[in-house]
């Protein structure tokens, strides 16, 4: 027995409140990040990821308070993404109790930022988030490109090559989201996940498309992901993290039970 594959619930936070309908049956306040984080912790979540989607710059501090509050009561690793553009942003999140930060568009506009961040804070806390979309036709060799602005804007950057480059710059983990699958509940893009996981020697988190528990297992077994991230499958009380782990364990995947 050795290292377990990880299940990571993801929470979207807007102005300090969790949005996108988290609905536990017996929770008092379904928007409170601390209550939701505690619930996932009790279910056996291996880590938590918070994505700050606060639109206005003035309210960016709210995520810092969320991290502080959660980190005071939940003792598992926390990752924060969204709006990380400067070294000062990273320091604030780490000081608030985050263990890792997700860097997405700032890496694309300035790859050196990833290098500086890894040198300053260590690769272990730098997660490079990649939003990729398939650009090859069915009869062509697989090819995915990085998209920004919620999947609307192509960059012309090859996703697999970008992942390799980001690791050489010091990224310690890749959070890989398929923009084709995100929100579709049709499962991870397994070919994309496998291509990136085989191309880099750091852990890869699969994201985007989970609709049922088997999708998580497939992400690990067929996609070769080191961790799987999901939101709605857990938020709406369809399944608990514990159920997901039992299902993975039955199919021979090592998990923390």
């Amino acid at each position: 027995m050795g290292l377990a594959k990880r299940i990571i619930p993801c929470l979207d936070v807007d102005n300090g409140r969790v949005v996108k309908g988290v609905q536990f049956v017996d929770i008092r306040d379904a928007g409170d990040p601390v209550e939701i984080a505690k619930r996932y912790d009790q279910q056996g979540a291996d880590e938590l990821t918070f994505l700050d989607i606060t639109a206005t710059h003035d309210n960016r501090d709210t995520i810092v308070h969320v991290v502080e509050a959660v980190a005071s009561q939940v003792f598992i690793p926390l990752t924060v993404g969204g709006g990380i553009r400067q070294l000062a942003d990273i320091r604030r999140m780490l000081n608030a109790g985050a263990d890792k930060v997700g860097i997405n568009s700032a890496a694309i506009s300035n790859p050196e930022f990833v290098r500086e961040a890894a040198e300053k804070f260590g690769s272990q806390c730098i997660v490079v988030a990649i939003d990729a979309k398939r650009v090859s036709d069915q009869d062509e060799a697989d090819k995915w490109e990085i998209f920004t602005h919620g999947g609307r804007k192509p960059t012309g950057i090859d996703a697999v090559e970008w992942a390799k480059k980001m690791v050489t710059y010091g990224g310690g983990e890749i959070l890989l989201t398929s923009m084709d699958r995100d929100g579709t509940k049709s499962g991870f893009d397994l070919a994309l996940t496998r291509a990136v996981s085989q191309a880099v020697n750091v852990p890869v988190i699969a994201s985007g498309g989970v609709g049922e528990l088997q999708d998580l297992t497939d992400g690990v077994k067929l996609g070769e992901a080191d961790a799987v991230l999901a939101a709605s499958i857990f938020h709406f009380g369809e399944h608990t993290v514990g159920e997901a782990k039992q299902q993975m364990a039955r199919q021979g995947i090592e998990v923390r039970l």
Binding site: G2, L3, A4, K5, R6, D46, S123, Q124, G172, E173, N201, V202, P203, D226, A227, R256
Partner: peptide, 11 residues
């Protein structure tokens, strides 16, 4: 399965 570095997760 264990070539990735850092060793990250629950062991």
């Amino acid at each position: 399965n264990d070539f990735k570095v850092p060793h990250m997760g629950w062991n």
